[in-house]
Design a protein around this nucleic acid. Structure first.
Length: 352
DNA sequence: AATGCGGGGCG
DNA sequence: CGCCCAGCATT
């Protein structure tokens, strides 16, 4: 925690949020009472799910399974049937398992403390905090994506929300603005403001009850927050090449301008079916290599004549190059490696 | 620390 | 149409 924030009083922000919530809360079915069962179901439904999408499912689910006892008695298939279309189906399976826990481990009574609620299957820190604060007045901030966004903007704080330390960091920040009283209203105020006003894109700052406390808004830097490093997406890639040659000459073609290795040269990526017969009589050397997250298979085919090579090249618009000339072309790294050490490999059959 | 789960929303 | 999405369990 930054020391310059420790001594200042930010509790007035939380108090404003609570006051705003008491007259501006969205009217939602699970807010008609504070039964922990209903709040719990609603929080699970709303994980990674918009209210607009989850509302109908929530109503049908509660109608079919009005209490933990009913949910406990149901079959897993029945529970899944009522989850159909919502996605993340392990949520439904865990809901069902948690109903068993409530009946068997908690004697049919929904647990009343954060630490016990957390023991339920499918309930993590966010959901446990939401239920504990809304239903049992425990002062625990319900830290989710909304909270990261709202807090980072209020404090114009560029702490990376992708960091593994972000949860603790934003918990500390939340406690700076969280009053002792009405923790449930406080958390729900953040939920409503996060989804309706302090939206990721095009936030409606003019309607925000704490816009004069929001440093990002006051300094016109809303779009800078929250700070988030996007991790490079890792995808496995499997490639197959044919190193088709006659003596010291072989075939290459320049890649297009899309995907990877733009404009670099590579070996043929396929062998047309009409060449199959000719190639069946050739010696095939199979070579596999890995590079980063790629696996590349290269089949070396020694043709019987220069004429065959030329025919193949003109049929498929390949370039015939000399081994020395090839050095002047730009190859992707794994192909260049192969090109320089291509005497490695095993004799095999062509894998058509 | 990274990955899988699933739909809808968004540019 | 591809990309994105902090909640939770699992690895």
């Amino acid at each position: 925690m930054k020391t310059n924030k420790q001594n200042a009083d930010f509790l007035h922000i939380g108090k404003k949020l609570i006051k705003w919530y008491q007259t501006n809360a969205r009217q939602l079915p699970w807010r008609e009472n504070q039964h922990p069962y209903n709040i719990w179901i609603s929080e699970i439904v709303l994980q990674q799910t918009q209210v607009k999408q989850g509302l109908g499912h929530y109503l049908r689910f509660i109608e079919r399974f009005p209490t933990a006892k009913e949910l406990h008695k149901a079959s897993e298939d029945d529970v899944l049937l009522y989850w159909k279309g919502l996605g993340y189906y392990s949520r439904a399976i865990n809901l069902h398992k948690a109903a068993h826990q409530i009946i068997e481990e908690f004697d049919g009574k929904f647990p009343t403390h954060y630490q016990d609620i957390l023991k339920l299957k499918g309930v993590g820190k966010y959901t446990a905090a939401a239920v504990a604060s809304i239903c049992f007045d425990e002062k625990i901030p319900a830290i989710d994506g909304n909270f990261y966004r709202v807090l980072s903007r209020i404090f114009a704080d560029d702490f990376d929300m992708s960091s593994s330390k972000a949860f603790q960091y934003f918990t500390d920040l939340a406690l700076l603005i969280m009053p002792e009283d009405k923790p449930g209203d406080f958390n729900q105020a953040i939920m409503d403001i996060g989804s309706e006003i302090c939206k990721p894109k095009n936030p409606l700052c003019g309607e925000c009850p704490v816009n004069d406390d929001c440093i990002a808004y006051q300094t016109g830097r809303i779009s800078e927050f929250p700070m988030k490093t996007k991790k490079a997406k890792v995808t496995d890639l499997s490639l197959k090449y044919y190193f088709i040659k006659f003596q010291n000459q072989f075939l290459i073609k320049q890649r297009g301008n899309d995907f990877i290795w733009k404009k670099l040269y590579e070996f043929p990526t396929s062998v047309p079916a009409e060449w199959e017969e000719l190639i069946m009589n050739s010696k095939i050397i199979n070579h596999k290599l890995t590079h980063k997250n790629m696996t590349i298979e290269i089949n070396t085919i020694e043709l019987e004549s220069k004429k065959a090579l030329e025919k193949f090249a003109s049929d498929n618009e390949y370039l015939i190059v000399d081994e020395k000339l090839a050095d002047e072309k730009s190859f992707p790294k794994p192909l260049e490696t192969f090109y320089k050490k291509r005497n490695v490999g095993e004799i095999g059959r062509l894998p058509f």
